[in-house]
Amino acid sequence: MEGTSPLQEEIEAFENMKDELLRHHNGKFVVFKGKELIGAFDTFDNAAREAIQRFGNGPYLIRQVGGSTGMPLPASVAYRPVYATH
């Protein structure tokens, strides 16, 4: 599922501001549209509602400051027993 991201500009802006975001908005959900930081919100739900109200279906980035940008594959997907039939 490798692919190019339609959010390259937003992700670069997030990375460029990362230190400042960690200082002032650690744990919050931030919305980026293009290079602009739109806001920081306590919950994903609040960030989503603001983003939708202002920009509809996007594109925009919603990411938690200080959150992980990676995850292990959920065990429920990774380990699916398939038994041999013969």
Binding site: S5, P6, L7, P59, T69, G70, L73
Partner: peptide, 15 residues
């Protein structure tokens, strides 16, 4: 699509 995440599985990390 609102973000990209790297998921690590048996085949290694993938975006």
């Amino acid at each position: 699509q609102i973000d990209v995440i790297t998921i690590s599985g048996a085949g290694g990390p993938q975006s």
